[in-house]
Amino acid sequence: MSVTEESRTVVARRMPERAPSHGLVELPLVASRALIGVLARFSRSSLLGAGSIAFLIILVFVAIFADQIAPYGPLVADYTALIHPPSLAHLAGTDNLGRDALSRVIIGARTTLFVAFTSIAIGEAVGSAWGVISGYAGGRFDLLSQRFLDVLMAFPGVILALLLLVALSAGVDTIIIAIAVTRVPGTARVIRSVVLSVREMDFVTSARAIGASPARVMAFHVAPQVVAPLLVIFASGLGGAIFAEAALSFLGLGIPPPAPSWGNMLGGILVTSFNPPWWLVVVPGLAITFTILALNLFGDALRDYLDPKLRGRLQQ
């Protein structure tokens, strides 16, 4: 081995993270190893958090491969078994059209999770951008935007969501927008309060001093500081979004039938009978409850993991 080759190996050994030129191929590997590391540390910090994240990961897999997992199609009607209680053929029973409740819950998971995730992603993105800009800009703009947020907060979110759903006609896109809108003011408030303290820190002042534009300071110096609280808001928001989707669909204004979602499965029962068969109440309800439970536990664990000091601020 020549001297240069040896020194190269030493360098490579000393800087393991810096990948050689073909690093792009290894990037997913590095990223997934980092992710596993974070997950392992997170799991050690909280057993409940680990359990909930395992549940959520399984749930996401079930949602993605719903078509393969579900024993029946979501719309396949078995007219020989209308409103049948749970049996070996239909583990969670059937509804009034003879559709398999278990299959509908499994396929419904996809809709429910998709709606929750996208609506929260949109809502938090808008809300946090608003909070960062409002908190960083300060002055008259901040004052005006705060008053506008006051109005949005006093405006009942449910009503706004209902108005949007009725006016734009129920559908997956509309319900995503409706839920997203209700998330904006709360997020903007919390993020703004974080930004107000970040703004005064030395690294922000020094960034300004070397001539960074406001947009640059906000994007590269302030925004990274709000990631931790934002993640916590995101996790707890998902539970809220699942509840919102379920409630709106339950009212018949959310995901339009016959496509299954956990909420409209519950709503469908009331339409057809005053004396609901118990399995049709229990099965989708448990799906909603356990998912929200897992998300809440995950959110709590995440909050403790990221910053124990955040506790007070986010509980409001």
């Binding site: 539970g239 379920a246 409630a247 339950f250 609901p276 118990w278 309800g285 909603i288 409850t289 929200i292």
Partner: peptide, 18 residues
Amino acid sequence: VTLFMAVPSFWLGLTFIL
């Protein structure tokens, strides 16, 4: 407490009726 914070109120209502 953790469990009941996750239970949707309207579903609790349905179960109550049931």
